[in-house]
Amino acid sequence: MKGPYLHMHSENLVKMANNIGAFFQAEPDHAVAVQGVVDHLHKFWEPRMRRQIIAHLQAGGEGLSPLAREAVAVLMNEQQKNAA
């Protein structure tokens, strides 16, 4: 993997996750909003993209909005459960 592009890709994934979060932010029920982002990531993101955003969160999650961060954390927990 090429370093600068990997960094750009992570930045891009963060931006995409935040944009998804911005749509679901309007949802008054916070749990529904988090689940909305999680479902979207499951339905539309290819697994390596999900793995990369989880890796980004594990590395500190710089730039992720609070809602996107929560959703990615849910993904991470699911991944860890599946691994176990």
Binding site: K2, Y5, H9, F44, W45, E46
Partner: peptide
Amino acid sequence: EPGLRIPNMFAAALEGS
């Protein structure tokens, strides 16, 4: 599992996968 969209393909090409 869903696959890559066009812009995701470009990003993945640049990262080497």
